[in-house]
Design a protein around this nucleic acid. Structure first.
Lengths: 216, 216
DNA sequence: GTCTATATCGTGATAGAC
DNA sequence: GTCTATCACGATATAGAC
């Protein structure tokens, strides 16, 4: 019960310890990069949100680019924590999870906005988030393909599987984008649910259509 | 047959006339905004592509923002000219057109890139393209909804119609984005065809499901 | 760990010569 | 119609005081 060593006392003083400070900064950066974009979002604006000057921010991260990477990693970490066991659901559970995510996203506009702004910018030349976004998409496609194979069975043709996975990611991102720009005209969760079901049904049908005659 | 007045001669001299020069600049700007984005794409880079200084560009357009608007209008104009009669197809023809567009887009990466970069950036605060993109999406949704009503008949429920239209635009944009970032992993025309068919079929099914029992 | 001060750079825009 | 020159501004990053 004794309240600890000198080092424990040190980290509990009124001065914020470094990991906490870093997280504060990352959160502010995510907000700024979301509203202004990476190019236009300045270190000065980020710093002012946490009561610092931009030199202070650079002390923790070294460069603006490193801060962006930290934001991207933090966002993925945050997504993982939405899941009870911190790992991606498998099979049909994945599609339920995606549907629930679309619903949850209506209540966390900031995160959606950050994701959309950075992803959108990443198509430009030499953008620091580019390779990160590419591998994120790639990993996501693989997850969804695996889930599709479980749901549709082993007869699912490879090309149908890939196209369906690409379509699912695409439609979720695309609907989010329209929703961000015009929330009154777009029903994010319902449109997403409709599209996911449509694509799932088409994948199942693709499986049936491609089944070799010998097996029928 | 006589080759014209003094004014006609004047516009044919070795010096470029203003409308031609404007178009050259707009094309260069579209390219630069596509590769670098609007914020990072500089007037200096645009000007150098047409053999001018940035002051020359500003002489024609007054401001960088006005140049962006010109690019957006030019891009829409260009899209219209892909159509034989310069007007959007109606009914099932629209969906054939969208499928053909996805195929054609693999051969005009620059245009797709420009569209994606500007649309992606437009979600940020006070972006000059924002209202343009919003009304573009809105008009597109209306077109597609009209076509869906023609294809599916008047029984198509309103919400299914809207969700399908939103999904179609979303999935086309979303697949394009993945394709731009990773062309080897994404088959743009085939994935688009798959998704469009899936959504169309689902809309038809939605119509059937919602048909009042009294009509069956 | 945060600040002030500064170096260095690039930008969009304006004014005026040619 | 295009150029040169310049202005005013804001950015990232560094150096060194506290």
């Amino acid at each position: 019960m004794q309240n600890g060593s000198a080092s424990a006392l040190r980290t509990r003083g009124e001065r914020k310890s470094t990991p906490e400070r870093r997280q504060e900064i990352v959160r502010a950066a995510a907000k700024t990069f979301g509203t202004k974009g990476y190019q236009k979002g300045s270190l000065i604006e980020i710093a002012s949100q946490v009561g610092m000057t931009h030199a202070g921010v650079l002390h923790h991260f070294g460069s603006k680019e490193a801060l962006l990477i930290a934001v991207l990693e933090y966002r993925d970490e945050e997504d993982l924590e939405l899941l009870a066991n911190r790992e991606m659901p498998v099979g049909m559970d994945l599609f339920w999870h995606l549907t629930r995510t679309a619903l949850a996203n209506t209540q966390r506009e900031g995160i959606v906005q950050t994701y959309a702004a950075i992803t959108g910018e990443s198509v430009t030349e030499d953008h620091p988030a580019r390779s990160f976004v590419i591998s994120r998409f790639s990993a996501l496609r693989r997850y969804i393909e695996d889930a599709l194979r479980i749901v549709c069975g082993p007869d699912l043709p490879e090309d149908v599987c890939t196209h369906a996975a690409t379509s699912i990611i695409g439609v979720m991102d695309g609907i989010q984008l329209q929703w961000l720009l015009d929330k009154e005209s777009v029903d994010l969760p319902e449109a997403t649910r409709f599209a996911l079901e449509a694509i799932l049904v088409a994948a199942m049908a693709g499986k049936d259509r491609a089944r070799p005659l010998s097996e029928v």
